[in-house]
C-alpha cells in the first residue's frame, strides 16, 4: 500500500499533462483512504474518500477548465536543477534521522496513547452516549475545534467568491510583451 502511494505520487509529480496529474491525485486519495481503513481510522477514511478523492478532484478539474492543462516541458538540463534534489534529499535524511528515536509502529505504550485518549475511550459512552468515540470527541469534547474548522471553511469560501466570483468582472488578460512588440 505504501509502495503504491509513493509510486503514484512520483507519477503525479512527473506527469507534464496536468489532467493526468489530477486524475492520478484522485487515485492517490483513494489509496490514502484505503490505508486509513487499514490503520483503524474509518471515519478519516470516508472523509478522505469523499473530500480528498471527490471534492478536491472536482476543484482541480474546474481550475484546469479555466487555465491551460499542459505544463511547460522542462528545459534543457542545467546545473541549477540539482539544487531542489539536494534540498529534498537533505531534508529527508534529517527527518529519517529524527524518526529513529520515535515510538515504534503499533506500540501500545507510546506516549501518544497516554493523556486524554484513555479517558475518551472509557468515559465518552457514559458522558456523551454515542458509541463512536471519534464522533463524540469531534462534536463534544473538541467542539470548539470543529467550530474553528467551520470558520476556516467560511473564510475560504468568502475568499474564493471575492477572487473569482460575480462573473469575473476584472480586466481581461494583459497583452503579452512579445505581442505588444509587434504593434
Amino acid at each position: 500500500m505504501l509502495a503504491f502511494l509513493v509510486v503514484t505520487a512520483l507519477f503525479v509529480v512527473q506527469a507534464r499533462n496536468l489532467f493526468v496529474s489530477v486524475m492520478l491525485m484522485g487515485i492517490f486519495s483513494l489509496l490514502v483512504a484505503g490505508l486509513f481503513v487499514e490503520l483503524d481510522a474509518v471515519d478519516v477514511a470516508f472523509t478522505e474518500a469523499a473530500v480528498g478523492a471527490g471534492i478536491s478532484t472536482v476543484l482541480f478539474l474546474g481550475t484546469l477548465a479555466l487555465v491551460a492543462a499542459k505544463e511547460r516541458p522542462a528545459g534543457p538540463w542545467k546545473p541549477r536543477m540539482v539544487l531542489p534534489f539536494l534540498v529534498v534529499g537533505a531534508t529527508f535524511a534529517l527527518l529519517v534521522y529524527g524518526s529513529l528515536d520515535m515510538p515504534r509502529y503499533g506500540d501500545p505504550n507510546a506516549p501518544i496513547h497516554g493523556h486524554v485518549a484513555p479517558r475518551y475511550l472509557e468515559q465518552s459512552e457514559r458522558e456523551i452516549g454515542i458509541s463512536n468515540v471519534v464522533t463524540s470527541v469531534l462534536a463534544s469534547y473538541r467542539g470548539y475545534d470543529t467550530l474553528g474548522e467551520v470558520i476556516v471553511v467560511l473564510t475560504a469560501a468568502l475568499g474564493v467568491m471575492l477572487l473569482i466570483g460575480r462573473g469575473r468582472r476584472f480586466p481581461r488578460p494583459r497583452p503579452r510583451p512579445n505581442e505588444t512588440d509587434l504593434e
Partner: peptide
C-alpha cells in the same frame, strides 16, 4: 481516537485552503 479527530478536521481545512 484523538489523532483521527484532528486529521478529520485537517482534511476539511485542507480542501478549503486548496480551493483558495
Amino acid at each position: 481516537p484523538l489523532p483521527h479527530v484532528l486529521i478529520l478536521t485537517a482534511i476539511v481545512v485542507g480542501v478549503a485552503t486548496t480551493a483558495l
